[in-house]
Design a protein around this nucleic acid. Structure first.
Lengths: 148, 148
DNA sequence: TTGTTACTGCATATAAAATGCAATAACGAT
DNA sequence: ATCGTTATTGCATTTTATATGCAGTAACAA
């Protein structure tokens, strides 16, 4: 695996600390790996890169989930029952994930915002209150124009 | 589990045969179960109902997948890494396009169909072609009325 | 009724996702 | 710089879903 320039490593280190976690080797390794990746990676794909360097499967597994909980990573499911992880942009002000719908390409995993999309349903429809009140996350899965 | 009226059982039996398969006990049990269910069920949820009746996990597992391949069931993924199965309407001429959105409660995991829901977006919106063409799966995540 | 073979039931395999726990190392305090 | 606390790791192991091999069974056609 290539390696990240020292200043980028340092930036990751600070991002981890800002999230209230310790900047450990496995966290930096996982984040570096995902920084270098062009697309979301599964735990297995991350391990293909990190196991040769001696990192432990279970630890990296926990790291990926922890960092996803801490909102440094996005954990996505493209419909094939493999969790994939993607580095999120460093948003100092916290990106409000659920105000708008998201489109996810089941081919490449790319996520795109659909701010203009809205839901309509007849008043008579029997749906949970949260749906009526738009207190829901809407995820639209399909293929993007390049993967179509 | 309740039981289906004899005529409905017979209809299922014929549907299975029409698909070129043998109308066996486990297939009828699985289809009955999904007919009685109000929403898509996972393999585990199907087994909660069928194991007490003596049905075998592996056999029902295969039956569900076979029937999904045969287009009697739809296999859906709501993003929580559980396959769920839903009975498709009996469309003699193929084209079982009763595709609809699904709601999943992030609290209890309960699933509900949202057949009346539709997506609207301005003509000007920049979205993938698949979204325009409705060649997409829609997942709505929120809290159900009891978990709210 | 009978023969063929699709299907079942049971045992077992594989893979991903998780967790318990003692040892370790990150980081704030000294 | 060193030390102490405790978050985190590494290793072993578990759980859960998904999947398959195979001998016996039962569905259907003849």
């Amino acid at each position: 695996m290539d390696t990240l320039p020292a200043d980028q490593i340092e930036a990751l280190r600070e991002r981890i600390r800002r999230a209230g976690k310790r900047a450990t080797g496995s966290r930096l390794a996982a984040l570096s790996c995902l920084t270098l990746a062009a697309s979301p990676l599964s735990h297995g794909e991350v391990m293909e890169r990190l196991e040769p360097q001696g990192w432990d499967r279970a630890s990296i597994f926990r790291v990926l989930n922890d960092l996803a909980d801490a909102k440094l990573l996005r954990r996505i499911d493209l419909g094939d029952h493999l969790w994939r992880f993607e580095l999120l942009a460093d948003e100092p002000h916290g990106h409000a994930e659920d105000e708008h719908a998201h489109f996810m390409c089941v081919g490449c995993g790319e996520v795109q915002c659909l701010p203009e999309l809205s839901l309509v349903l007849p008043k008579s429809a029997q749906v949970p209150r949260s749906v009526r009140e738009d207190a829901v996350q809407v995820r639209v899965l399909g293929r993007c124009d390049t993967c179509a």
